[in-house]
Design a protein around this nucleic acid. Sequence first.
DNA 1: GCGTTATTGTTATGATCATAACGATATGGA
DNA 2: TCCATATCGTTATGATCATAACAATAACGC
Lengths: 154, 154
Amino acid sequence: MPRTSTRPAAAGRRDDRYRLDDQIGFLLRRAYQRASANLVERIGDHDLTAPQFATLARLYERGTLSQNLLGRLVVMEPANIRDVVQRLRRRGLVATGRDPEDGRQLLVCLTPSGLALVRKLLPVEAACTAKTLARLGRAERTLLCDLLRRLTVD
Amino acid sequence: MPRTSTRPAAAGRRDDRYRLDDQIGFLLRRAYQRASANLVERIGDHDLTAPQFATLARLYERGTLSQNLLGRLVVMEPANIRDVVQRLRRRGLVATGRDPEDGRQLLVCLTPSGLALVRKLLPVEAACTAKTLARLGRAERTLLCDLLRRLTVD
DNA sequence: GCGTTATTGTTATGATCATAACGATATGGA
DNA sequence: TCCATATCGTTATGATCATAACAATAACGC
């Protein structure tokens, strides 16, 4: 039973060298939450989430892609990118069709409506990134991006 | 309809100044996915996720906490920390009880079983953090943590 | 004391996430 | 050719996430 004891319930010797706030995974999760919240705060009136916007942005950069490759390019598992594409398609932002040359692949591309939305929101995203990084100097920003990229090299 | 055209389906002028791979939010999401996968790879045989372990670690550091405060300390909304606590309780890693001094609060603490598990996994987590940061030098690691912390100051 | 406000926890909904299992199609080698 | 393998998409399950709405309790101001 929990008590409002002055001593921690997990009494006994504690490992003072461990601090959750020093664990990179915890810091990354917290930072991503903040960045994601910043984005939704600005583009949320269009009912777009961060992963959805990333998907649209990738299609904008690369044009028509298979659903599977699109998923890899936005770091989503096949089962997840499928759901995102489905939601975007339901809203008319994306169109899909079978690849005539490979019956397995499902090709995905932006619709004119999706393209217009991306064009409208690109500067908003850039501003959002700036807000997230507001407390860092110019050199620190590029340094942070560089360090994060190096964490995820294959 | 999607085509396997050589030109992007989103033809027309593109904003070359925007790159998804330069957006801090995208980089943070990717890095967190990697860190989380590293952790699950090592503690997954105990069926613990990253947020679950963070919750146990916080209880280990701070002792008995109200569910609400616990949630804030691991950066989870009330609705989410509730579910996590419920799962940990079902597995006997955590115990809960009403605060006699404040009928609203639900106190949460580690059980002996939960405490033993945390003690066992703390060094594993530390090793996991080291693996995530393996590609960075010592100075770079502390720098990265510092930059991430500064992104999330209130 | 009493009513307003604030805090805590719960419920519900919908969108990410990861994983496993499964068909359908392509590809490669015997 | 034919078969084993690989790839792609789908389905299912369960765990995070955020948000809104709600009840219960506490704290506060008058």
